[in-house]
Design a protein around this nucleic acid. Structure first.
Lengths: 124, 124
DNA sequence: TATAGTGTAATAGTAAAATAGAACACTAGG
DNA sequence: CCTAGTGTTCTATTTTACTATTACACTATA
């Protein structure tokens, strides 16, 4: 996996797992790969994986069972809340950043539309 | 100034100065505060300021004159290009992140609109 | 009960970012 | 020429993220 060196790896691992939860690669109650396997897959150290998982356990996203493995929470409401929270965090950040570049509300929306339209002509 | 501990301070200082350039607090050709003064203003070490400025000098955003000070480039085209680049970088990031959370193109635009509308009812 | 697979924890070492402090180089003005 | 204000550079130290390695704790099962 390739990482952005501007943000901590353990933080990017969290986002990676969120991604798999939101896209259905990891459904509610599903067992995650073993921490040592994740470390190999992501080409990082076990402790770095553990740090990411530790925070997710703290926030109730995944549940740990010693000797068995780590599992996505079965609380689907919790997962839905998490997704909403992650989306809003992204929106807040981009809004703040573009606002700081002196773009108006309308310009922010327009620039995103334009970006996605142009992107659609080149990708997918 | 308050910093996000998830990203290097020198990097946030660059964004801070970009912000002032884009909002007209620092016009083309304007003299920046002395590095030691900036360090005080931002409650940060001189070397950290210098690292941020060094990168901006490299990319042609500001020009350094030993003994005189640091100045915003007079090349307004360069500044306009920079703004466009910074905007696109933000759009790319938020698009990638929201796409990773399984939002469609339309959902991404809709969620941003909704966020800005709701925000407008509470702020400014 | 032995063993393999799992999570957890602790120690030690490396690298990058940031800090603190000092020194050096240049400019302008008295 | 001297001095104050500026950018520039250097060394040393601290902190944080990450890595490497090992050990421990628990579970399932042959």
């Amino acid at each position: 996996m390739q990482f952005d060196d501007k943000v901590p790896i353990y933080y990017q691992i969290k986002n990676h797992i969120y991604h798999e939860m939101m896209t259905g690669q990891l459904v509610a109650g599903a067992k995650l790969p073993a921490v040592r396997q994740l470390a190999v897959d992501l080409t990082v150290n076990v402790n770095t994986v553990q740090r990411a998982l530790g925070e997710m356990i703290q926030e109730g996203t995944i549940e740990s069972q010693r000797g068995k493995g780590n599992f996505v929470t079965t609380d689907t409401t919790r997962i839905a809340q998490l997704k909403e929270q992650l989306v809003v965090e992204q929106l807040e950040r981009v809004y703040q950043q573009l606002h700081a570049l002196n773009l108006s509300d309308d310009e922010i929306i327009a620039s995103l539309k334009q970006y996605i339209e142009q992107r659609g002509q080149q990708h997918d």
